[in-house]
């Protein structure tokens, strides 16, 4: 994959992170002046257990090319087991959206602790590079623009199609 051509676009990557570990980890990366791609938009949650799969779906629908979900390592959850519940939920959700036809390479999960600024940089950089080689996520964008036939207005494209009959 590393050898394939990169697309010329700025990927939009949404990161859903827990406030206790990964957010602090990302903060550490910043204060340590580590460089990582600016494509990632970080959204802070109390816990990975609070990150509803529908958020991930919504991110894809509203234009994200990749999504990252990141929180505390097992055993480190501020609320004892939020991340362990999340682990099962995301395992299930992955298989579901893969079954619907979403390429799982666009969805990443990681454990990044408050001390792992370096790992945060690594995860974000790798995901960004991967999305760069994959190109923009077109399926959801196209779907978003689609109307049911009866709600469509006459368009130049439609007239063009009629001309070609």
């Amino acid at each position: 994959m590393h050898h394939s051509k990169k697309h010329a676009f700025e990927p939009k990557i949404v990161a859903f992170v827990c406030t206790w570990c990964t957010y602090a980890g990302a903060d550490l990366a910043g204060t340590s002046r580590l460089q990582y791609p600016a494509n990632v938009r970080v959204l802070k949650f109390p816990c990975t257990g609070r990150i509803d799969p529908v958020f991930i779906l919504r991110a894809f629908q509203k234009g994200a090319d990749g999504v990252l979900v990141s929180g505390c390592h097992p055993g480190d959850c501020h609320y004892m087991a939020g991340n362990l519940h999340a682990r099962r939920r995301f395992a299930a959700f992955r298989t579901l959206i893969e079954f619907v036809g979403v390429d799982l390479d666009r969805l990443e999960f990681s454990w990044v602790s408050a001390a792992e600024g370096g790992k945060w940089v690594e995860v974000v950089t790798e995901l960004t590079n991967r999305i760069l080689t994959m190109g923009p996520l077109e399926e959801f964008k196209a779907l978003e623009a689609e109307e049911c036939w009866s709600g469509k207005l006459d368009t130049p494209e439609l007239q063009e199609a009629y001309n070609n009959i």
């Binding site: 097992p74 362990l84 682990r87 099962r88 995301f90 395992a91 992955r94 990443e108 999960f109 990681s110 454990w111 995860v123």
Partner: peptide
């Protein structure tokens, strides 16, 4: 012991 092979 749940599977977490999909998590980095």
């Amino acid at each position: 012991t749940d599977d977490q092979s999909f998590i980095k």
